[in-house]
């Protein structure tokens, strides 16, 4: 009986170790082959890099050029900026707000490329039966947002458009998971958010956008940023990344049905939700231009004027124009 127990536990431990070693192997596989130069791309579910990742062409093309691409997923832009600052990410695909906050906190980063906007998929969500009918009705209401993200900028712009002051609403800072619960339980009256989450909430929570980015001029544009020292040393690589991502973006614009199928399976979102978020945006990825720098500068200025940033930032000093 006792020996039986001994051998049972021994087998269990061996099994445990075997699985652990297998797990170790799996993490090693991610590290990739050694002759190629490793490039780490940070992305968030559903974004441009994500499309390149699921399409699969990008990695192959980069491999042919001598680069081993590793994709790393992040839950939000702030975490990605943190990883970028510590040199764990070489290129990060972020929204328009996190890089501004990161620059203000002293992160040395450079804008390498600019993508399309999510202006129609970003905005302030309200329940369809809500008493809020116009932007001015937001007065005295509780609005959820996430600090340091495009939702904060969205809300600031919306208030400006409505002619309200910042104190006219109650700002409720929640991360997206907590905000989704608070919104569905009615603990907040409105929620500044972006796609695909907006699409999901619109469909499942019987909601609509009170205002979107086209009105507020909070466009929620995509950017690719890179650590400054890395960017200045790897201009050829940056150009390759822009080129191949743009190719994937063109594919994405032409092949909505394939994209929607893949994304909904992968993100475990219904096709309806994915379709809505995909069709209302145009994918692209191009080198930086003066006009997008101006947009970014506007965000930095608004944040500085509202005491969200303590430092004045000149975005144009952190841009690489690759041609």
């Amino acid at each position: 009986m006792k020996n039986l127990k001994k051998s049972f536990i021994a087998i269990l431990l061996l099994f445990w170790c075997g699985i652990a070693v297998y797990g170790w192997h799996l993490t090693r596989e991610d590290a990739g082959s050694s002759s190629l130069k490793n490039v780490v791309l940070g992305y968030q579910a559903g974004d441009e890099f994500y499309i390149s990742k699921i399409r699969g062409q990008f990695v192959k093309k980069m491999k042919a050029k001598g680069y081993n691409v590793k994709f790393k997923e992040f839950q939000n832009g702030a975490a990605m900026m943190q990883a970028l600052a510590s040199g764990n990410v070489d290129y990060a695909r972020v929204g328009d707000t996190p890089p501004v906050s990161a620059l203000a906190s002293g992160t040395k980063l450079t804008y390498v490329a600019a993508g399309g906007t999510k202006a129609k998929g970003s905005g302030i969500l309200i329940h369809k039966n809500s008493s809020i009918k116009t932007l001015a009705d937001l007065k005295g209401k509780k609005v959820a947002y996430t600090k340091g993200t495009s939702s904060q900028y969205m809300l600031l712009r919306a208030l400006k458009v409505a002619g309200l002051s910042n104190d006219d609403i109650t700002w409720v800072n929640l991360d997206s998971d907590a905000a989704s619960v608070a919104y569905s339980k009615g603990k907040v009256d409105a929620w500044a958010n972006w796609d695909p989450s907006v699409a999901q909430v619109e469909i499942t929570e019987n909601s609509k956008l009170l205002v979107d980015g086209t009105t507020t001029k909070a466009l929620n544009r995509s950017f690719i940023v890179s650590p400054t020292t890395y960017a200045s040393k790897n201009k050829t690589l940056s150009k390759l990344i822009i080129k191949y991502t743009e190719q994937d973006m063109k594919w994405a614009n032409k092949n909505h049905s394939k994209l929607i199928k893949k994304m909904s399976a992968d993100l475990k979102l219904s096709k309806k939700v994915v379709r809505r978020s995909v069709t209302r945006r145009t994918f692209s990825m191009k080198a930086m231009s003066k006009s997008v720098v101006k947009e970014e500068q506007e965000i930095a200025n608004v944040f500085y004027d509202n005491n969200i940033l303590t430092k004045k930032i000149d975005v144009s000093k952190h841009v690489q124009y690759l041609k």
């Binding site: 445990w16 170790c17 699985i19 652990a20 070693v21 297998y22 797990g23 170790w24 799996l26 993490t27």
Partner: peptide
Amino acid sequence: ENMSISLYRAT
């Protein structure tokens, strides 16, 4: 896969 990776990290 996820379980064995977790088990590896834990161990």
